[in-house]
Amino acid sequence: MTYEGARKRSSDPAEDMQLVERCKRGDRDAFDELMRRHERKVYNFAFRLTGNYDEANDIAAEAFVRVYTRIQSFRGDSAFLTWLFRIVTNVFLDARKRRRPRPSESLEQLVEADDRALARLAEDASVSPQAELERRERDTILQRAIAGLPEYQRAMILLYHVEGMSYEEIAAAMDLPIGTVKSRLNRARLALRHALEGSAELFAR
């Protein structure tokens, strides 16, 4: 499944708000339901930010704990999902301030993920192995290029292209003016394009 497909299953903001109100009254089931609805998006975003499964797990868990402890302060000025991504971004940036990135581990994990995917692929006759191999190679190269971006640009690229957020939503999530979001996104895209120049042929297919 691709992100394009995942984006179409976006949750209903009104239902999110109902769950938030129940959480504010101390309803643990409501918070569990909120997590169930958004855990995949949060984990994916954390994984694309870090390129590392363990770190993504830690950041996703910490972000949900932060949501739980601050839910009383959420007033619904933005969509819950926008607020949630803001918290994930902040947890990621805080974690990066505390420790240095682990690029070698990230690359090993990407290769490991590819191996697992190939094993699954061998059992799936509907997908051409060659096409799937190429797609996975593109994903790996793209993930490495994203990991090479400065952290703020990385978050913006993922929020816009992968999570499908608008400029306005990103501005709200990152507490920045829309003009700044647009100019930083533009710089990030040009930097990504530059990083992928050596793989142009693979991406043109």
Partner: peptide
């Protein structure tokens, strides 16, 4: 081309023990 590639990144499933 980059735009399309970003749109088609694969979704990684959240681990079952996250919640």
């Amino acid at each position: 081309v980059l735009w399309r590639a970003l749109d088609h990144l694969e979704v990684v499933e959240a681990p079952p023990g996250l919640r």
